[in-house]
């Protein structure tokens, strides 16, 4: 399809009344691609850390997520077990094999069956770890990887996400910067972009029938966020 490609580029240039961009214009465009310059970032994303954590929580709740704050990671197994019991869900969870969750001692709650891996059709509750939380709209950022299956974010009806408070940033742009830094650190291609980056704001919903919002259209019906005070020693995981 080289013919079609050249013709499309050619007709764009012809319509714009020029040939290929001259080198200086090309360089200006490429500079834009590498500088990651921000446009206007709304004030609500530029607050101090305590305000961002509160803002994240309030905004996520407004989008119909539930948020539970935990003093430390020791509380995670009990919080998950309580969540299952509260909603009368099967006592089984499918957990991302994420190093960030490796230190969670699920054996504290032996009644909950724990398995690891990508989601299967039969899984009712998935547990994953977030990459970041964006305060401006209460949005979670989740990334795919060998230990971060994307299917867990969508297939089970219930989604529990573990978010460390230090992962909360103000604006989406802050999350991009963290992702780029992370990409450089682990040496991924494509400017640090994993195959999938999911911005998730509340549980799945639809307004397609008479514009009345119904939760749980195809993705999770419930989104429960465990907001864990950051471990000062970073001992976990």
């Amino acid at each position: 399809m080289t013919g079609a490609r050249d013709q499309m580029l050619g007709s764009i240039r012809a319509a714009l009344g020029r040939g290929p961009l001259d080198p200086s214009a090309q360089a200006a465009c490429d500079e834009r691609l590498t500088m990651h310059r921000r446009n206007l970032v709304p004030a609500r994303g530029r607050l101090d850390m305590a305000a961002l954590v509160d803002g994240f929580t309030a905004n996520a709740i407004e989008q119909a997520a539930t948020v539970e704050r935990l003093a430390g990671p020791e509380g995670i197994p009990a919080a998950v077990a309580d969540f299952l019991a509260r909603h009368n869900l099967p006592a089984a969870i499918r957990v991302a094999p994420d190093p960030a969750l490796a230190g969670v001692s699920w054996s504290d709650r032996p009644t909950v069956t724990v398995s690891q891996g990508s989601a299967r059709d039969s899984d009712t509750t998935g547990v994953t770890a977030a990459f970041a939380g964006v305060a401006e709209t209460g949005t979670l950022v989740l990334t795919s990887g060998p230990a971060q299956p994307t299917t867990l974010n969508f297939l089970p009806e219930n989604h529990v996400v573990v978010l460390w408070s230090e992962q909360i940033v103000g604006a989406y742009e802050d999350a991009w910067d963290r992702l780029r830094a992370h990409g450089v650190a682990i040496g991924t291609a494509a400017a640090g972009m994993p195959r999938t980056v999911n911005f998730i704001t509340g549980p799945s919903r639809t307004g397609d029938i008479e514009q009345k919002i119904q939760l749980g259209a195809h993705g999770p019906r419930r989104l429960h966020i465990l907001l864990v005070e950051s471990d000062p020693d970073g001992a976990l995981g």
């Binding site: 905004n59 989008q63 094999p97 990508s118 990887g145 994307t150 991924t188 994993p194 999938t196 911005f199």
Partner: peptide, 24 residues
């Protein structure tokens, strides 16, 4: 569009699954 602060899912997809990826 809908008056939402943000849509529920905004997804950025880059290439096929990477070597070792759990799914995709």
């Amino acid at each position: 569009a809908t008056g939402q602060e943000f849509s529920t899912y905004t997804t950025f997809s880059t290439g096929p699954r990477r070597a070792g990826d759990a799914d995709g």
